[in-house]
Nucleic acid binder design. Structure first.
Lengths: 195, 195, 195, 195
DNA sequence: CATGAATGAGTCTTCATTCAT
DNA sequence: TATGAATGAAGACTCATTCAT
């Protein structure tokens, strides 16, 4: 019984994901989301307080999914390099399905509730920590240079991965799944400098 | 006379910049933008076809400004490293004034006109080329490793700079102007790998 | 068995009375009434055809209660003056519990069904007759002036009682139970005129 | 210019009066009020913040009108009896046009804003004072009995007038304009008592 | 009999845009 | 040319009512 309700909640969130992604927050209509989920308009409001609430819960759900998948992918890998490649690949896969979400669907400043902002920060921190741990490990095993500024390195890796996927998709219309993460990680590992 | 019109056009765009940044596209009201520009609501429509048109022209104006400033900053610098640091610093300064723009103000997918999208791609390409040229130069002068994958390196640099600024501001509430670009560029230059 | 159903019907009506009084017709929600009655939302519809039906039956129930109590109170009294005072006192007691009903809960014109309006008229007529009979008696016993316009006198008494209670409660926040009915009746009996 | 806006404000209020009276607060649609006023739906919101605001301003406007007319009517009359008859007649005229307003259009408890409630109380007090002054005068001139309980007498008069009009209209479908106020006032003046 | 999950008709309100002045 | 009063399309949200369990 409880799981039935929970299942329908997920159904609605997944319908919302699709519609929000396609139309953005403001042009996505509740009625359309409901239809996509195969239910009536009013039913959405049995599960979520408002359009905003639905949006926030969707973000939370996606963030959790992203994080869990990233963790799994990285756990299997052994070396830091492999872990980062796994992360990049995961990022690409995820992005290929939820692409514009992050960039296009945002409803505007001051929109997210304070609680939600807190959640988002936590989530970003979790991702940060995921990379940070890998780097820490790499320094200990000697795989990475000992004088590394871990914080900046972490931000740089995340940025490099993110931008490489985003811009390749954007400029070259590549399917993110088909992007090879190896050269990205290689570049970050080896640096630009000629010695 | 023509320059009077042009000046008022700029005034409106600058008012729009402020208001769009503060409220995001959908919650920004034309009336408020008009008031901010010190004119009447209807007058906005003498200069722009629609809210969307105003938004697009604003984006274009800002992108041009960004690009011009980036070019100037990089021209002064000599080595590639200095150029990239100058770019990063410029990025930080610009972002400190127009921050949320990029992240929060976006109106939703399918919003920008095709022509606008084309403009945006051109703009991104210009930025890409700016960095690309610097790398090219670095390879020729031997400052950078000759086997560098320029495309990926460019994306990585842009991503690293962007994310470092964004996340430092986000997590640590640092004023972007106060961020030191050196360690970011150093990290990218030296790479992560322990040789 | 029949009385069990009847009892639950009364329970619902009493829950409805409380909720309608507190929120008014339109803001009173069936779900809340059901909860107040300790039953499920759907069950209300086993006993009443609609919200409107429930409202009308509630009014009818209250009116009957009012009338019965008024009759009892007046039967005990002997003189007309006493009867009117008893009526006034009863009115105050009743009003103290069901106050706003009459003033605040009314759903709007054209709302009550024709049958219901008929009921309401009958009810008002019954009250009218109650007072009318008392006056008739008073005229016969010589307690009241023989040339009295009974109809107008009855309306005036009802109005005087009603308004005195209402306005004292309204202006002076008096508990209706604590209002002394004697001076009201005295005023009506003696008239304003200085002989 | 200002008076044009003010005139339109009044137009809307008068349209609202008609529609609210016909349908009650909840069933009255803004669109219908706008149509009645010969304007577009959105225009209503240029003059009033919300349906509730419109309703409250309408009440205020009507109350002021009622009070002003009552004052005028009573000022012309000389004796207390005449004043009260004038008041009653005015009440009847007003009620004949705005009848159900008071009884049927009320939106429910807790609806009126605090400021509005305060206004309403002030208004009722003004009416009270109008009668109260007349009685005071009557006591001084010896037209009324000196031992009169003014407060209760005032409430009683208001109640008698109100109920006589309301019930005659209700029971006998009389047009309030056609009701003779003399016997009502006579009854109140002479009292019920056979000396 | 009782329930409460599902439903969708109904309406207020916002705001980009128009156009008479 | 500049204005701002007027407009109405569009959409989130409520809640009485139904009906499968």
């Amino acid at each position: 019984m409880n799981s039935l309700k929970e299942q329908k909640r997920i159904d609605i969130i997944e319908a919302a994901t699709k519609i929000f992604r396609r139309y953005g927050f403001h042009k996505a209509k509740i009625e359309v989301i409901a239809k996509e989920a195969g239910i009536g308009k009013g039913t959405v409001y049995e599960y979520f307080d408002s359009k905003k609430d639905l949006f926030e819960q969707m973000i939370k759900y996606m963030a959790e999914t992203y994080l869990n998948m990233a963790r799994e992918a990285m756990d299997i890998a052994e070396t830091v390099k492999e872990k980062l490649m796994a992360f990049a690949q995961h990022h690409g896969n995820f992005v290929s399905e939820h692409m514009d979400m992050a960039e296009n669907v945002i409803p505007g400043p001051g929109f997210l509730s304070e609680e939600m902002k807190y959640q988002m920060i936590e989530m970003k921190q979790s991702i940060f920590l995921l990379i940070d741990e890998a780097l820490e490990m790499g320094i200990e095993t000697g795989e990475l240079r000992p004088d590394l500024n871990k914080r900046i390195a972490t931000f740089s890796i995340l940025g490099a991965i993110n931008h490489n996927y985003a811009l390749q998709v954007y400029f070259e219309s590549v399917n993110p799944k088909d992007i090879d993460s190896r050269p990205i990680i290689d570049t970050v590992f080896n640096g630009l400098s000629n010695k």
